[in-house]
Amino acid sequence: MLVYLGRRLNLLVITLFILCAGSFALAFLFPGDPLTNLSGLANPDEQLRQQLMHKYALDQGFFASLWQYFQLIFAGDWGISMRSGSSVFEEVTRTLPASIELSVYAMVLSLFIGLPLGIFSGLSHRKALDRGILSFSLIGYSVPVFWLALLMILVFALKLGVLPMSDRVSLLYDVPLNTGFVLLDILQSDMEHREAALQNAFAHLILPTLSLTVFTCSLIVRLTRRSVINVMDSDYIKAAYAKGMSRSEVVWQHGLKNALIPIMPQLVMQFTLLMTNAMIVEVIFSWPGIGEWMIQAIYQRDFPSIRGGMLAVSVVVVSFTISMDVLLKLLYPLSKRQLHAQV
């Protein structure tokens, strides 16, 4: 197990290293002066230019400047956003929690809806219930997320007027920025009208979360259903029936455990898809998350922000994927046998 942990840690470090180097290379690939792309200061005069050259060690060769870049990244100096003039690192730490919050709620909701539906569907293979659930999941899988979000805004926000269509919480409530997760912030704060603010934040969450959930949920239903069908067809399930166990006993003791664990790695893989969709949904609902922030950055050609945002999002995704991988390995004893089989 230690060997495995070491390998994964190694993978994590190497991947982060590659991503860091990639973001450094971006400064040279983006149009414009690399120095401006790194620091975020447009049109520096000669003296400032010399200072920046020295700060980023650009005059001391490629590897020296790469090393300098790593040190600056770890020190939290990610350059300055060309739009707002504030530090990129601060803006990332402000916007990233909002995106993670949205994705986590959507993921939890999809798991709560998707897993049971997938199991029901798989257990009643080739029956009416299965067909119904499968068709719904196919439809949910094919709907473009941004179109669904627009339709939801049209129906619920404009026609019916029951739900708000943009931002995280109404401007009436002055929520102190603490953790960056809006619900936690409201719960922690001692503002007046806390209940009302909480309700308001919930109402703002409904539409973005739902439009994200539809896609993720249908994916989960499809994965779960396939896995349940495969397991229920296998020989050891027949053996369990032959032993005289009832259907519910078979399903609970043999079926579900074996069906659910193998799909966990695949579920983790869907996190990147969810992130992509979350970034699109953020733009539509003006959710102040990293997706919206980066899209705005590209409209205004704010290259330091794009560089920082890319690094932040990919680091989050990679760390999440690898740590879940390790966690699953701990929970699922069978996969320990494959310890050395895979790189």
Binding site: L11, I14, T15, I18, L19, L26, L29, F30, P31, T272, L273, M275, T276, M279, I280, G291, M294, I295, I298, R301, F303, I306, G309, M310, V313, S314, V317, V318, T321, V343
Partner: peptide, 25 residues
């Protein structure tokens, strides 16, 4: 092993992020 690591790194980047970077370049 090198190919695997590189692919894992690319797969970890969400499509939209990749698109934003390509479009920025």
């Amino acid at each position: 092993s090198v190919i695997n690591h590189l692919l894992d790194a690319i797969m970890a980047i969400p499509t939209l992020l990749l698109a934003i970077i390509v479009v920025a370049i």
